[in-house]
Design a binder for these strands. Structure first.
Lengths: 201, 201
DNA sequence: GACGGAATAGAACGATCGTTCGTATAGTTC
DNA sequence: GAACTATACGAACGATCGTTCTATTCCGTC
């Protein structure tokens, strides 16, 4: 019971690594087990099905995202500092060494957005929560007076998401070394707009 | 020689449809052939390998993108009108019925961005060309005086790309009916910034 | 130290994968 | 219409997929 949880974590760790490169469907029990020095059936017994393995991989990834991006940002002061913390942590997350093939949440979203099932349901919920978190942080920034009162906080959340996706694309597909600078430039423009009072706009 | 080209087109048409939902790797010669009423080996003979099939699917998709998004935009006047045409055509492209699973170029980019090979090379080149096209259109808008002279046209191209990716995410993963409005709102903010002279910024 | 359940291994299952081969059919060319 | 080539089919290949079953080994508890 103790040992099982340990190896299960080892399995999930490597599974996240593999899935980030080959996708959740490209993730294979055979290659995963041999890379870990386990037998196929031994590994399989931990999950009972590939669907369950995929789900647990997604759950582990979301948990890491929250630990890496969300929670640290919560210890930053409300308002602009927290917004900036989320953005910086998010950019860093995209280069997290536990996902050498790039953010698994983005890859899985594209892979499963048209395949009904528990994987898609879970991903939808996770992305929705993340979207709402950024919107809430923006709402707080309005309340603290850092952002203008008439800011559409959900539109702001969409804009931040778009920047992250654009960064992922430029960084991973085009391998553009300017990806970081481009994302930051757009973010600063977004921040300036969110802060500008209605008269100067 | 005549007949072969016809069925090859029929195959690619259905292949694009399937790949947009299941991914290029999830696209299977077996299911593709049965859906078309062909034999596996008969279909296979048209391409010689799955890699070649995937490549031709990508080529067909890029060609359609250019016919749907790029070429019509070229018949719009240089400057702001052409920029707007590209953006509108791009949004429409994301809902093209030939790709019921969403834009294959985005899906394939995420799927192959970490797998070296001819598929990735082709995708990289295609996305690079698209990026350059938008930048060039923005440069023309600067020359026509629609955009401010100090605009970073490549940054502008990045921003447009990010909006399209954000739209794709909100539309296909979150199924948010406001996706269209969100993308347009961000685009208008981007346009306003590109037009604003240095003093009012 | 014996017991019991959890953890792992090994072999095999049917299904499907991409691919090959030999053969029949359909189309084009003279 | 004969000759020829392009096109399509059917059967089979070895490999790998997820999964099942049985047997073995490990570990914590009395």
């Amino acid at each position: 019971m103790r040992k099982g949880a340990e190896t299960r974590e080892r399995i999930l760790d490597q599974a996240v690594r593999l899935a980030s490169r080959d996708g959740l469907e490209g993730l294979t029990i055979g290659t995963l087990s041999t890379e870990l020095g386990l037998s196929k059936s031994g590994l399989f017994a931990h999950f009972g099905s590939k669907d369950e393995l995929q789900l647990q991989v997604l759950q582990a990834t979301v948990q890491r995202f929250e630990e890496t991006v969300i929670h640290p940002a919560l210890s930053a002061p409300r308002g602009e500092p927290r917004i900036r913390a989320v953005f910086e942590n998010w950019l860093a997350w995209e280069n997290n060494p536990s996902m050498p093939g790039g953010c698994l949440l983005i890859a899985a979203a594209v892979e499963f957005d048209d395949r009904p099932g528990p994987q898609r349901d879970f991903l939808q919920e996770a992305h929705r929560r993340r979207f709402a978190f950024v919107a809430k942080a923006a709402r707080m920034a309005v309340e603290t007076g850092h952002f203008r009162p008439d800011l559409d906080v959900e539109q702001f959340s969409f804009d931040v998401t778009a920047i992250a996706l654009g960064y992922h694309h430029l960084h991973r597909m085009l391998r553009d070394p300017k990806a970081d600078a481009r994302a930051r430039a757009t973010f600063e423009r977004l921040m300036a707009d969110a802060k500008a009072c209605a008269f100067t706009r």
